[in-house]
Design a protein around this nucleic acid. Structure first.
Length: 488
RNA sequence: GCGGGUGUAGUGUAGGGGUUAUCACAGGAGCUUCCCAAGCUCUAGACCCGGGUUCAAAUCCCGGCAUCCGCACCA
């Protein structure tokens, strides 16, 4: 059985995520985050956010509803609407462009009427069965709102990035006109996927963490650094390399200092949230597969069973010129010696895909068949669970009062007195709780409790007052007691 | 979107025109229990939706929706 299937089963059973609107039959491409999913996702986002904050990024939050003018300027309105054909005989659906080329035509056709006229006057055949194709349809990848705005159509944004670009002048003024400048936005994006599949991997509504790094186009320089991890790099031409991005082998593959810096930074973030870098590859997108806005892109792909899933894309793009032309607002920046139009390096994080990758990479099965989510402490929904070993001799009362105190220190804790002790450990293992604190008869004598570490199932006694004063996460005594079995 | 498969409790399943709809695990209450889903008692919980055929449909037929696999799509 695939790990993906086992994780989805666990996620539904334990409340990480569920298909949305299921009592009404469901709606494809939409998922709810359950009680534990919300906690896990927010912890992942927190690491992402703090990592960029630590790199001097500034944050913004812009609307999901966006006027068409923005997407006319960005090119999405043209490029996100595909003309398609469907064969009336075999029902195979193809891109119009593909079908035309196969029949020897290289015309550029932009509208449905144009296409229908062309198909009426020329013999274009279905690639699959050879039947003649006579009509085209348009497939829009953006959702258009039913009501109009003050300047025309309104769309749900297919990416959060444009909200940053259109605010570039305000942001750069806020940033006191310095470059380079990194601006980040966490938010929802919407794409009308033809066939959403695989739960969180292809959604119609998804969360993105996008960062737009504005740099001098001549140097595209962010900062000097040394690569932190050996990465699996697949350049668009030449042999794969496994090396630090600043190593002699990898440096020539990198188009700029900014590109290599944010590739390395992305690796550090993915590792911190619990993704195994051995199962990650950085693939430079072939030139003919690049998005309309990008001149160079590295996709960051995570291995899930036998597939590689794109979780992050780091693109070199140049949107400011389009908005300057379209809006008439000046987007260029005065440096000491010249005026420049900043280039943009954009690391774009697919939060939902990272979320399920974290679950998949953390999932393991013990020899007895029980399941464990070996999540890093920093992303686990709960940091600790508190149990009385048995519900008598006052142990339950004692444990409850300890729990109340611990919770004031750290709200990410849970109390459980139901079922056998083994069952309670197993419950916490499945949801990734790193520590279980158990009150037993010895507690009555010396105020110590056992702390059980999830991955090793080993137990060490601690004083209750020490746990309250030092907390659980970041408690050096706990780390020392279980090292090296503590993850990270 | 197309073709094919599948839809029964939280999860995984059995059954298949008239049943009290099977079983396991998970869940809740209690008993027991001093350390890893143990045991006992009690308990709650399901035939995806709509239409048709029929005296009778969870079961057969049609449509829809969801999901899985393949194709296409993933800017």
């Amino acid at each position: 059985m695939k790990v993906y299937d086992q994780v989805v089963e666990l996620a539904k059973r334990r409340g990480f995520f569920w298909p949305s609107f299921s009592i009404y039959g469901g709606e494809s491409g939409l998922y709810d985050y359950g009680p534990l999913g919300v906690l896990l996702r927010d912890n992942i986002v927190k690491i992402w956010k703090e990592s960029y904050l630590a790199d001097d990024a500034i944050f913004i939050d812009t609307p999901v509803i966006v006027p068409a003018t923005v997407f006319r300027a960005s090119g999405h309105l043209d490029k996100f609407a595909d003309l398609a054909t469907e064969c009336s005989k075999c029902h195979n659906r193809q891109k119009l462009e593909t079908v035309l080329e196969a029949s020897g035509f290289h015309n550029i056709i932009k509208t449905v009427p144009e296409a229908n006229e062309f198909l009426a006057n020329n013999v274009v055949k279905c690639i699959v069965c050879g039947n003649r194709i006579t009509s085209a349809t348009e497939f829009k990848l953006m959702f258009r709102m039913p009501s109009q705005g003050s300047t025309g159509d309104l769309y749900l944004r297919p990416e959060t990035a444009q909200g940053i670009f259109v605010n570039f002048k305000l942001l750069n003024n806020f940033y006191r006109n310095r470059l380079p400048m990194a601006v980040a936005q966490l938010g929802k994006g919407f794409r009308n996927e033809i066939s959403p599949r695989q739960s969180l991997i292809r959604l119609k509504e998804f969360s993105q963490g996008e960062v737009e790094v504005f740099v001098d186009p001549q140097k595209k320089f962010w900062k000097d650094f040394t690569g932190s991890h050996r990465l699996n790099l697949l350049p668009r031409s030449g042999a794969p390399v496994t090396a630090e991005v600043t190593s002699p082998e990898a440096t020539p593959l990198m188009s700029s200092n900014s590109m290599s810096y944010f590739i390395d930074k992305t690796a550090r973030i993915l590792r911190e949230v619990g993704i195994n870098l051995d199962s990650v590859r950085f693939r430079q997108v072939p030139l003919n597969d690049l998005a309309h806005y990008s001149s160079d892109t590295w996709d960051v792909e995570v291995r899930i069973d036998d597939d590689w899933v794109e979780v992050v894309g780091i693109a070199d793009r140049n949107d400011l010129a389009n908005h300057e032309k379209s809006s008439g607002e000046t987007m260029s920046v005065k440096m000491e010696d010249r005026t420049i139009m900043p280039s943009i390096i954009e690391p774009s994080y697919g939060i939902d895909r990272i979320f399920i990758s974290v679950m998949i990479h953390s999932f393991r099965t013990r020899e007895n068949g029980f399941k464990v989510l070996s999540l890093p402490e920093s992303v686990a929904p709960y940091h600790a669970a508190v149990f009385p070993l048995v519900n008598k001799d006052g142990l339950d009362k004692l444990a409850e009062s300890f729990f109340a105190s611990l919770r004031e220190k750290d709200p990410y804790v849970v109390y459980d007195q139901s079922g056998s002790i083994g069952r309670r450990y197993a419950r916490q293992d499945e949801i990734g709780t790193p520590y279980c604190i158990t009150f037993d008869s010895q507690t009555l004598q010396d105020s110590t409790v056992t702390v059980r570490e999830r991955d090793s199932a080993k137990q060490v006694r601690f004083r209750t007052d020490q746990l309250i004063s030092a907390g659980i996460i970041g408690n050096q005594a706990i780390r020392d007691a279980f090292r090296p079995s503590v993850p990270q």
